[in-house]
Design a protein around this nucleic acid. Structure first.
Lengths: 134, 134
DNA sequence: AATAATTAGTTACCTAGGTAACTATAATGG
DNA sequence: CCATTATAGTTACCTAGGTAACTAATTATT
């Protein structure tokens, strides 16, 4: 029985956190999945869509959609790679300019949401579980 | 930084488990969200849609959709309550008949997916975190 | 008793993420 | 060198879950 509970709790936790993030990001016009991409690009520089989707462990089609939306918003540009199949994605100047404000919102939110204690413990448990799943 | 990692890992874990569940349930024609409803109904008897969505912590509209699909599949029936706004949902005989087979699949899957140790610990951490979020 | 407010469920529309099938380019093998 | 195979990205379509706006039934208020 605890197995069911464990998975259900995990699922619920994940959904609730996503909702909170989207809510907090509302004034910025960003969604959580977009923020994830922006965060990676800010820290890793330009990446191909393939690299992005691998890094975030998401399939290619949702990545395409998320990026296309961000292109429309003017936060990201797609630059054809040497390999003409590839598209390198990078943040626009506008995105770089707005980044600090976005980051602040997310950091504040995380502070308020994350368990005060046991953070490291929980992270290690999750990570080792995730690794078991391959 | 660990905050980002923690949330990302949790999200990824949740997605991966959902995918595994859907994959395992494929031969039955059920999806994970439908299984969740069936599991609750089996253990609680008939419930209104409101009660179901509260119990599973899901909003009413997705619950409506999930149930409508299950009605079409013949696994669930909607019975008008005394309060004519309500619809009580219960499993059909067919669903009861197939339940043991479904349960077996899920139990086998969970056994193979869940971390051998630290299960209780992880569950408690998640639960206390979830409670903090209200 | 009649009107107002609340509640259960549905519909429409949005993002998130998955698979399958496709296109265009690149890499490989005969 | 050409044909085959592999790869990056896109499109179409599916489930999951969310909000807003609606309908119909019930409860509260005046």
């Amino acid at each position: 029985m605890i197995n069911h509970e464990l998975i259900h709790t995990l699922h619920q936790l994940s959904r609730r956190l996503t909702n909170k993030l989207n809510e907090a990001l509302k004034p910025t016009g960003l969604y959580g999945s977009q923020w994830a991409v922006i965060f990676v690009l800010k820290n890793k520089g330009s990446l191909t869509q393939k690299e992005l989707s691998e890094y975030l462990a998401v399939e290619a089609p949702p990545m395409t959609r998320t990026i296309q939306r961000m292109v429309k918003q003017g936060y990201v540009k797609q630059i054809p790679g040497q390999d003409k199949r590839e598209k390198r994605v990078e943040l626009t100047d506008e995105a770089h300019a707005k980044y600090p404000e976005w980051e602040k919102i997310v950091i504040e939110l995380n502070k308020s949401l994350l368990p005060k204690s046991h953070k490291e413990e929980l992270y290690q448990l999750q990570k080792s579980w995730l690794e078991q799943l391959y």
